[in-house]
Amino acid sequence: MNIFDVAGPITLGPSSSHTAGIIRIGNIFRKLIKGNLRRVDITFYGSLAETFFGHRSHLAIMGGILGFKESDERVKNSFKYAKDKGLIFNFDVDREFNPPHPVSLKIEGESDLERLEVLGVSPGGGVAEIRKLWGFPVVIRSGTNTVLVLHRDTPGLLSKIAGRVFAFGINIGTAHLTRLKRGGDAILVLELDDPIDERLVRVIERIEGVTRVRTVESV
């Protein structure tokens, strides 16, 4: 721990795990879903199912989904902004589900282009993590530059993707490849040391076998 870890974050109260971290989960979700958002369904899990209301985590997640940052006081009125945009939203709690962390939630979203479901975790200190995406167990962490590549599990694809990233002079910090079954869909999660170049995204998209590319820049 250094002194930057002690001072801050600059954030909305009342609790970094129930506000800042939750807002960042919403920010990442907004980056992941394409198109105009029409509807979101949010389910709180674990202890969050009990504590979300007092900590205004419902306002926090809505603000995050609208793209407001963790220090933006518009979050306090996020329901009003959502209604003005015509966004349909529902909130629920699920105490049966056993979440990966006590402060967890699910977002199911629908835009004019696609549907997306993610599982978000706020482990503390204002950090956010996405733990499930496109049906795959993943770890996408706030504060990183992450590229997500959905593709068909084919030999040699990983080295092709890595080669393209390398050609852009960007270093790959960590890489995680997950597939549900051999030859089926697989997801590659790359954390990069430098900000993502939009051209790189288009280059990866053109690789044969790649079906979808999304990026999350350090929020």
């Binding site: 001072a7 801050g8 974050p9 600059i10 954030t11 109260g13 205004r56």
Partner: peptide, 18 residues
């Protein structure tokens, strides 16, 4: 109280003790 009201604060070292 500003922290409890969801205002912008500096967590120092935490939001509760800000």
């Amino acid at each position: 109280e500003a922290n409890a009201s969801m205002c912008r604060i500096v967590a120092f070292p935490t939001a509760g003790a800000s």
